[in-house]
Amino acid sequence: MNIFRLAGDMTHLMSVLVLLLKIHTIKSCAGISLKTQELYALVFAARYLDIFTHYYSLYNTVMKLIFLGSSFSILWYMKRHKVVRRSYDKDQDTFRHHFLVLPCLVLALLINEKFTFKEVMWTFSIYLEAVAILPQLVLLQRTRNVDNLTGQYVFLLGAYRGLYIINWIYRYFAEPTYSTHWITWISGLLQTLLYADFFYYYINSVKNNVRLQLPA
């Protein structure tokens, strides 16, 4: 464990807490893409299959439980909660996210480190996470004004994998036994690059203290 990995996990944790805070306190999920949340729940379900079979550390197990619990409770809020679900704008959240799932699954079957069920599912989760934000980014472009909490949520979500990239670089040079993980590295880089233009507009809006508006 290094400081970059810890910072990445904390940033990721902050992103889900910001989202839960928004939904739980103001009882609204306006501007949040349910499709991205569904993809993330799938990412965690596929990635953490080893949660009960392979104990690595208490920290890892606790964090996996938090990410699983938070992502599924966000789904519950957005789909079942009588007040919150009314603020979900399904006419705007139209990205056909099913078209993301199948290609990631096929790619995971073709390109993986080991052809076992758990390894293919883990690889599938890596590929899917790289594109899971797309419905949310598309929704942000549509809903002109982005409220602060949603902007913070997306920013933190993009920053966490960026910190992981620094963690991978650090581990590669600092840990003699750390080998190459091209699948994780390339997917993580692609994932972070998808946020590039969002980061640009978000940082500008924070700097100039104006509301975040993404270009059409």
Binding site: R5, D9, H12, R47, D50, H54, Y56, S57, N60, M63, K64, F67, E113, K114, E119, W122, Y164, N167, P176, T177, Y178, S179, T180, T184
Partner: peptide, 10 residues
């Protein structure tokens, strides 16, 4: 470089 296939990150 030897590295067990288990995934130690989140």
């Amino acid at each position: 470089k030897v590295d067990d296939a288990s995934h130690d990150e989140l």
